[in-house]
């Protein structure tokens, strides 16, 4: 497995894994029971997605490692998820706005990858599309509800947009290790993804009467190259606690 391919696979897996972790943190904290269960459901879909990719990375690795090893035993600098998925739940508007940005991204990413010449990526994309189509429907509907619900819900959603927008450009950045391979039919065209993503976000914001931040130039990045936010260390401390403390144990 060349480095570019490994990085590309890990971006997909780590994004799903860390986002799933954040959603799982919300378990028993939902605004009502049905929504609590829906969040867990999305977390389960994402962890399943991550697991498929980690297993494939392990399978294609020259080292004798398992999918779990890839998922749990790397240093923080080797996790390649974008900063957006690490951002804390804060409140339901933040959780759902982060989800809406990621669901939109996943929807177009997997639509593109469904015709990838990489058989693993195309199979993964076709399987995941069914799930992320539902995820996007759900999070779009929440954005529209927030914007058209009460003054408070609109305010909270707008605040979440202001805080999270700065992490959205990173979704469309290409790591140097695979940037040259974009356009060869293996990976998704990042510029095209950004255009589609922006159109969808504009459409939902229009229906929701929500707006993009005034200052859209200010953007943060680094996650894809292993430079994470301060939140990431705490996520990994919890997630890796048992595998690190008891490296010989099987669970």
């Amino acid at each position: 497995m060349d480095q570019g391919k490994k990085h590309y696979y890990l971006e997909i897996a780590d994004n799903a894994h860390i986002l799933s972790h954040r959603l799982a943190e919300n378990c028993s904290r939902g605004p009502f029971l049905e929504e609590d269960l829906a969040c867990t459901n999305v977390a389960l879909d994402l962890i399943g997605l991550a697991e498929s990719v980690y297993n494939e990375v392990a399978k294609q690795s020259t080292e004798n490692v398992s999918g779990d090893y890839v998922a749990y035993r790397r240093d923080e600098i080797d996790y390649r998820n974008c900063l957006l998925v690490e951002q804390p739940n804060r409140d339901f508007a933040h959780l759902m706005t982060r989800q809406f940005f990621m669901d939109t991204y996943h929807y177009y990413l997997f639509t593109e990858l469904s015709v990838s010449s990489d058989t693993f990526l195309s199979a993964l994309a076709n399987k995941s599309l069914k799930e992320v189509t539902y995820h996007l429907k759900r999070s779009s509907e929440w954005m529209i509800r927030f914007g058209n619900g009460t003054e408070k819900s609109k305010e909270k959603a707008q605040d979440a947009i202001e805080r999270l927008w700065r992490y959205t450009d990173e979704l469309f950045e290409s790591d140097a290790s695979y940037a040259d391979s974009i356009g060869t039919g293996v990976y998704a065209d990042q510029d095209k993804l950004k255009k589609l993503w922006t159109q969808k976000v504009d459409e939902v914001f229009f229906l929701a009467h929500l707006r993009k931040p005034e200052n859209r130039e200010f953007q943060l990045n680094g996650g894809k190259t292993g430079r994470h936010s301060e939140h990431m260390g705490y996520i990994l401390s919890e997630m890796q606690f048992l595998p690190n403390k008891y490296p010989d144990a099987r669970w």
């Binding site: 972790h21 943190e25 867990t40 389960l44 962890i47 779990d68 749990y72 048992l242 595998p243």
Partner: peptide, 19 residues
């Protein structure tokens, strides 16, 4: 224990159980 589940499988099982 969800955020500290020690493997992907155990985390999935626990999440599904709580659900």
């Amino acid at each position: 224990w969800i955020t500290r589940a020690p493997s992907l499988r155990s985390k999935k099982i626990l999440l599904a159980k709580i659900q």
